[in-house]
């Protein structure tokens, strides 16, 4: 694989995470537990969508086959998507939405601080803008985790279930393959190994304040780094790509 191909796939992976998580959050529009929270979740979805646009556009430029961010989002097959399994998990209830946000935002909080130091100036610039947004996402998710964990019996139980249900998708956050390692030697990619402990400490402290238990170590699901997903992604893409697929000649 050439360096260009590696950088393309690495950027695509970052872009896909933002795109799919944004899609999940956008499904909640008009369904928030209170109007204020509806707007808050939409703000996060819009941050992620903006990030997806920037990253997919850059991926298209690296690839050099004249594909736009829309071509990459709307004309790519499921097996060529590389978003984390966690991002595609359903909005089962508000606790699951918050648990997903907590796990991902905590990871991204550390990831983008490192990526800002990347030798790739475009990725570094995108990371610089992203880190500000992610700080806010993390605060939002932490505050809600604590409120729900330390709220009523029902909210505590729901939050604990959500944490338990999604725990098996958190191993993937730190997965790396040959692409990462190659780009790492060139100072472009982030080494996620050292992030794992920081992530654990941060999650522990939030869960602790929320009176929630950290799940026991369990088998961690994997696959997205090779384009193998849960059943959910296919449905997301079927919906998202519908118009572009049904009317391939149309410009929107």
């Amino acid at each position: 694989m050439t360096k260009k191909e590696e950088l393309y796939l690495y950027t695509l992976r970052l872009g896909d995470n933002a795109l799919i998580l944004s899609h999940r959050l956008s499904q909640l529009c008009s369904k928030g537990p209170i109007l204020e929270e509806d707007l808050a979740l939409t703000n996060i979805a819009l941050d992620l969508l903006g990030r997806a646009q920037a990253l997919l556009k850059y991926a298209g430029e690296i690839e050099g086959k004249n594909r736009s961010e829309d071509d990459l989002a709307y004309r790519r097959e499921e097996k060529n998507y590389y978003n984390l399994l966690l991002t595609e998990q359903p909005n089962k209830d508000f606790a699951h939405v918050i648990a997903r946000q907590l796990f991902i935002s905590t990871f991204e909080f550390f990831l983008f601080q490192e990526l800002e130091k990347s030798a790739d100036t475009t990725l570094s610039a995108i990371a610089g803008k992203t880190i500000k947004e992610v700080k806010y996402h993390l605060q939002h998710a932490s505050d809600w985790t604590i409120r729900l964990g330390d709220g009523t019996k029902e909210s505590h139980d729901r939050m604990q279930s959500a944490i338990n249900d999604l725990w098996m998708y958190t191993g993937e956050l730190f997965e790396m393959n040959g692409i990462d390692l190659d780009l790492l030697t060139q100072g472009i990619a982030v080494d996620t190994i050292p992030l794992q402990k920081k992530w654990r400490d941060c999650i522990n402290s939030v869960l602790n304040e929320a009176t929630l238990f950290v799940p026991k170590d369990t088998y961690m699901q994997t696959g997205s780094i090779n384009g193998v997903h849960s059943e959910h992604l296919g449905h997301i893409l079927a919906e998202m790509q519908y118009l572009q697929r049904a009317y391939p000649d149309a410009k929107w």
């Binding site: 939409t42 646009q53 997919l56 709307y74």
Partner: peptide
Amino acid sequence: EGNWITRAPSLRAKQILLAKIQDEGGHGL
């Protein structure tokens, strides 16, 4: 309008639609 967010045909269209629906929630507020 929410009925079309997940089927918006481009990233730009989706972004605008989300922001617009969010505005409507804000206006209700």
